[in-house]
Every structure is written in C-alpha cells, then in structure tokens.
Amino acid sequence: MDKERILEKSRKENKNQDEMERQIRIEGESFSVLITMLVGIFLLAWKFVHGEEYHDILAMFWCTSTGCALYRWVIRGQKSQVWIFAVSLALLIYNLVKYLIGA
C-alpha cells in the first residue's frame, strides 16, 4: 500500500511539473508577441507622424503573427489557428508587396 501511495504522489508531482513548464512556455510566447506588438505600434505612430511609409512595419508585425499561428497549428495541433494563419499570411503578403513596390 505504501508503494502505491508513493507512486501516486510521484505521478501528481510530475503532472504538476509538466503543467508548470507548459504555463511558463505559453507566458514566454505571449510576452514576446506583446513586446513585438508594442514596438510595432510605436514605430507605426512614429512613421505616421513623420509622413513616412509604414508597410515595412506592418509586414514585420504580420510576419510575427503568421509565425505564431503556424507554430500553434503545426506543432501544437490547434486547428483553430488555421484561420488566423491564413488571414495573417494574406496581410503579410499584401504589406510586403506594398513595401516592395513603394506604394
């Protein structure tokens, strides 16, 4: 009986450790996307105030969004990310083309 209790306690500790690692990974991903978004907003505002083209900043933002959605769809298997990936990819391509042709 003691052996079973020890094994059960060990399983619970392992499960708690796995959940904690998962939570840390998700928070790290969210933080990096948040920082990218905040810097992008700052650069967009700067370029808008100074009358400069801003499609390069939007392309970088949508690149980050596309990458995150692709990672969550392919690696994590979150099928709901397909739509976010598709929209992000379309906006990425649009802003890249606008930036490259200089419009």
Results as ranks from 00 to 15, higher is better:
43 L>G: 01
53 E>T: 12
35 I>R: 01
35 I>H: 00
42 F>W: 13
44 L>W: 00
46 W>K: 15
24 I>R: 00
46 W>L: 13
34 L>P: 00
37 M>T: 13
50 H>Q: 15
21 E>K: 10
31 F>A: 10
44 L>R: 03
21 E>D: 11
46 W>D: 15
29 E>K: 09
33 V>L: 13
30 S>F: 11
49 V>C: 09
55 H>L: 05
52 E>T: 05
41 I>K: 02
21 E>P: 00
36 T>Y: 03
25 R>W: 08
20 M>F: 11
46 W>I: 13
38 L>D: 04
20 M>R: 14
25 R>Y: 11
40 G>F: 01
33 V>E: 04
41 I>L: 06
35 I>A: 01
34 L>Q: 09
51 G>C: 08
54 Y>W: 10
50 H>G: 10
32 S>N: 04
40 G>C: 05
34 L>E: 06
36 T>G: 03
53 E>L: 14
24 I>D: 01
26 I>F: 07
50 H>K: 13
29 E>R: 06
33 V>Q: 05
39 V>I: 03
35 I>F: 05
28 G>T: 01
37 M>E: 13
31 F>L: 07
38 L>S: 06
42 F>V: 15
44 L>S: 00
48 F>M: 05
36 T>C: 12
48 F>W: 14
36 T>P: 06
35 I>T: 02
25 R>I: 05
34 L>W: 12
43 L>V: 03
54 Y>Q: 10
22 R>C: 07
30 S>A: 15
33 V>P: 01
54 Y>V: 10
45 A>N: 09
49 V>M: 13
32 S>G: 06
47 K>M: 07
37 M>N: 04
23 Q>K: 06
34 L>K: 09
53 E>V: 10
52 E>W: 10
33 V>Y: 04
20 M>Y: 13
32 S>Q: 10
31 F>M: 06
48 F>V: 08
51 G>N: 13
23 Q>Y: 09
46 W>G: 02
54 Y>R: 13
48 F>G: 08
44 L>I: 02
40 G>Q: 03
47 K>L: 09
38 L>Y: 04
53 E>H: 15
34 L>D: 11
52 E>Y: 09
41 I>S: 03
34 L>C: 06
41 I>P: 02
42 F>Y: 13
39 V>K: 04
31 F>V: 08
44 L>K: 00
42 F>A: 15
53 E>S: 10
19 E>S: 10
45 A>E: 11
48 F>R: 11
36 T>V: 13
41 I>C: 05
35 I>E: 06
39 V>P: 00
48 F>A: 11
51 G>Y: 05
42 F>C: 12
36 T>S: 12
29 E>Q: 04
44 L>F: 03
24 I>Y: 02
38 L>R: 02
21 E>H: 03
35 I>Q: 04
30 S>K: 11
21 E>V: 11
23 Q>H: 03
35 I>D: 02
29 E>W: 08
